[in-house]
Design a protein around this nucleic acid. Structure first.
Length: 577
RNA sequence: CGGGGUGUAGCUCAGUGGUAGAGUGCUGGUUUUGGGAACCAGAUGUCGCAGGUUCAAGUCCUGUCACCCCGACCA
């Protein structure tokens, strides 16, 4: 390929709409063009990267007999009615000319399950693994960060169908390993973490996070035993109960004018935030209000709290807080509530005593409050968000450390959740009718593209891992007035192409500096410069990401040297398992 | 949906109620030719849209749309 023919409109300045590094570089490098909020066109360079990632996914999934299919973007409402998912808020909805309801596909469990229930009826037809790489449409409340969270994006979605838990477990682990190989080959550091399954349910699930400081999720991991979890999900081990408890003192109400945050109360009363108990009022799905208590320096974790309560909970409306506490927001406490509520407390509050709590009176708090002594805790549980420094929930010696990550994959054991609702069953070896066991496996192709940039960039632009770079090597002709440079570079281009290198020849009528800047910006990993050294039979070859600069190589060896560099870079990205 | 911000040339941005601007990019020319060259000449606008105030609106007022950020949400 020649740059003189390649459509790659690079920009010198950062478009105003982009804040995130990957978004800026995708726009500046001419990889994508925004069409609407969270909707992008892929230009030639962007589509090359997209297809390289897709191809890696295909190869790894095909290796365990995954079979690619293609399902429609348009999904009739009736299909989603079967599982109740026609009420999902992020759905794009539309009607056809006959007023029939359709949705744009946001994931395809129902569509694929419909295929399988139509044709699969015997245990002999499984295991079966179907997948697609396709556009997904979700009317996100807030798209952001370019390709990180779009309303239209590309996702690999795989679905497994099995006759037993053991078989499901096998394919789940097969997938898990394939994801590892995919991210290794894409040249991104990843971590598989235990995660919250959300409303999709299922017995086991893992998120795959690409580790980068700009990630929007926090992951916690134990270097001792390898436990890793999304901070939203990470467990906190129960408190060690052998701590000597201070004797409860007599509680009393003290004035705390204008102090309604933990920080303000701590400063006013000159106590640490750990000595304060936050009382958070929540509403359950059936409209009841409950109180959650966590230490002042901790955060209530709603997913965890929901599990303890046994159903989804959300923060109570301010009006409800006023009604049950009898005080403005900011002064809630577990003692002397206006309305008696079930009280849930975080396990950590078993340690220590004589806490500060809200007095349920404006501008007042109650000091020397000890759970069990001054008020009754109805339920103890693990309801706070784990943080770095917490003890590992899986091993006695470990401590959790944190890192930031971008969620690029999420795999679930679905069990019978969809197959039961949609009556997808088979006849077993012994003749019984049995519900099919499913798993689903998602991987964001476009998001991986953005995350790879987040993880691999510098002041000059993108430094693509070679397996997903739009081209593997770029040849820059430094002086377009020099016919010998041009003819040598063209021969080198053809030789490299013949050696199987995905090579780009920069033959534009531009000064050398412009070409260097552009090649750095679009991130071609191996750079070859054919310039003034050619009269002495020399060219320069080096790695985009290397600080050492380019090496001077004999022109006659340029093709083999370049091909070897490309091969070495690829070898570096060989799967680690 | 709540809070904040921004809409002016392809892009980045100035613009005091009184003639629509700069840098960069683009076109032509001359000179240059190894890290976004210099000079000369040129083209480029529904000032987001719709109302309103005014002799006069890019500028003031009202509404509306779009985009970005924070939060809520995120199967």
């Amino acid at each position: 390929m020649k740059t003189s023919k390649l459509f790659f409109p690079t920009l010198r300045e950062i478009p105003r709409e982009a804040e995130l590094t990957s978004h800026q570089l995708l726009l500046r490098g001419g990889f994508v063009k925004s069409v609407a909020a969270g909707v992008y066109s892929y230009l030639p360079l962007g589509w090359r990267v997209h297809e390289k990632i897709s191809q890696i996914v295909r190869e790894e999934v095909n290796s365990f007999d995954g079979q690619e299919i293609h399902m429609p973007v348009l999904v009739p409402k009736e299909l989603l009615d079967e599982t109740g998912r026609s009420a999902v808020p992020v759905l794009f909805a539309l009607k056809d000319k006959n007023q029939r309801d359709f949705f744009l596909g946001f994931t395809h469990e129902e569509v694929v399950t419909d295929i399988v229930r139509s044709f699969v009826n015997s245990w002999k037809q499984m295991p079966l693994y179907l997948y697609q790489i396709q556009t997904k449409e979700r009317d996100e409340p807030r798209p952001r960060g370019g390709l990180i969270r779009g309303r239209e994006f590309t996702m690999f979605d795989g679905y497994s169908f099995d006759i037993s838990e053991a078989a499901l477990d096998t394919i789940y682990r097969e997938n898990y390993r394939a994801y590892g190989r995919i991210f290794d080959r894409c040249g991104v550091q990843y971590l598989a973490v235990e995660a919250d399954p959300g409303a999709i349910g299922g017995s086991e699930n893992h998120e795959f996070m690409i580790l980068t400081p700009s990630g929007e999720d926090t992951v916690l991991s134990c270097s001792t035993c390898g436990y890793a979890a999304n901070a939203e999900r990470a467990e906190v081990p129960s408190a060690s109960s052998d701590d000597a408890k201070a004797a409860p003192l007599a509680s009393e109400v003290v004035s705390t004018p204008d102090a309604h945050t933990v920080e303000q109360v701590a400063a006013f009363l000159k106590v640490s935030e750990q000595q304060i108990i936050k009382t958070i009022l929540c509403t359950t799905a059936d409209g009841k209000t409950v109180a959650a208590l966590v230490r002042g320096d901790r955060d209530l974790n709603l997913p965890k709290f929901s599990r303890v309560v046994g159903g989804p909970v959300e923060l109570a409306e301010p009006g409800e807080v006023v009604r049950v506490t009898g005080a403005p927001v900011g002064y809630a406490g577990p003692v002397s509530l206006a309305v008696q509520l079930p009280i849930y407390a975080d396990n950590e509050l078993m340690e220590g005593g004589n806490f500060v709590v809200g007095a349920n009176v404006a501008d007042a708090h109650r000091i020397n409050v000890t759970p069990g002594h001054d008020f009754k805790v109805d339920h103890w549980g693990d309801i706070r968000t784990a943080v770095a420094g917490d003890r590992c929930p899986r091993c006695p010696a470990g401590e959790l450390a944190d890192a930031r990550g971008i969620e690029v994959g999420h795999i679930f054991k679905l069990g019978v959740k969809y197959s039961k609702a949609m009556n997808a069953s088979f006849q077993s070896e012994t003749g019984e009718k049995v519900t099919i066991l499913m798993g689903c496996y998602g991987l964001g192709v476009s998001r991986t593209m953005a995350a790879a940039i987040e993880a691999h960039n510098d002041a000059n632009g993108i430094a693509w891992p070679i397996n997903i770079a739009p081209f593997e090597a770029a040849i820059v002709i430094a002086n377009m007035k020099d016919e010998s440079q041009i003819s040598f570079a063209k021969e080198l281009h053809d030789s490299l192409a013949a050696l199987g290198v995905d090579v780009l020849l920069d033959d534009r009528e531009e000064r050398a500096g412009v070409k260097f800047k552009d090649m750095d910006l679009i991130g071609i990993p191996v750079q070859v410069v054919v310039g003034k050294g050619l009269v002495d039979g020399k060219v320069e070859i080096g790695l985009r990401a290397s600080a050492d600069g380019r090496q001077v190589v004999a022109a006659g060896d340029a093709a083999t040297y370049t091909a070897a560099l490309v091969a070495a870079e690829k070898a570096r990205l060989a799967p680690k398992q």
